[in-house]
Simulated assay, not measured.
Amino acid sequence: MTAPTPLSDAEWPGGIADMLPGFAGRLDIYRVMAHHPALLRAWSDLRQHVVVDTALGAEFSEVVILRTGLRHGSDYEWGHHVSRARKLGMEEARIASIKGPLDAMSEADAVLAGAVDELLEASRLSRARQADLEALVGRAGMFDLMATVGFYTVLAFIANTAELPLDANILAELEKTPAP
């Protein structure tokens, strides 16, 4: 059996044709997910919240996504979110620090990355980490962090299972300016 591949426009399921011009048609990860149209349709609202409407804010969200992608060994998620972090103006040293130990990060990034680590190691946040997160991003931010880790864990599972290479535009960008 071969790994699922991104569906082309010609292969795109009719029941989700309205999703092709939007987020689902822009990234190969969603073109792979389109093999299961009902899942992709259901995914849409959660994606809107986790990716766009998160209480974490754009930069803190990227820290969480990068650490999650790293911890899952997902080159696809890491590469795509290095690109996104750069577009947000995050410095290369900050992006690179997310790969390392918590004590090499800024205090805020260490709180966020430490939360990712705890969730992936123990499937829970310690009371101390909850307190640190609430002080940093509020209770809604803490819940959005957990949702983001779960969301990007699923995407890492899909990307890794599909052995999905970087989308061509991200690959070209990272060949020009390699990821830290």
Rank of each mutant, 00 (worst) to 15 (best):
A135Q: 11
G57M: 07
L56K: 14
E175V: 09
L27I: 07
P37D: 01
E107C: 05
L119I: 12
L133P: 04
L119A: 04
M1K: 11
S74F: 02
D117L: 08
L7H: 05
L88Y: 05
L136E: 09
R26I: 00
G89M: 10
S106G: 15
G114N: 07
A42N: 09
V63H: 03
D45R: 12
W43Y: 12
A147R: 15
V149G: 09
I29L: 14
A135P: 00
G14Y: 09
Q48S: 11
R84P: 00
V50D: 00
E163I: 04
L120R: 03
R67C: 01
D144F: 04
R41W: 03
G73A: 06
G79E: 07
G69K: 08
V154H: 15
I65S: 10
K176G: 03
G57H: 03
I29N: 01
V149S: 02
R94C: 06
P4Y: 15
A58S: 12
L174T: 00
Q130K: 11
V116L: 04
A128F: 00
L46D: 03
I29E: 04
P180S: 02
L164E: 07
L20M: 12
E118I: 11
A110I: 13
E62H: 04
V149E: 05
E173K: 07
V82D: 11
L46I: 14
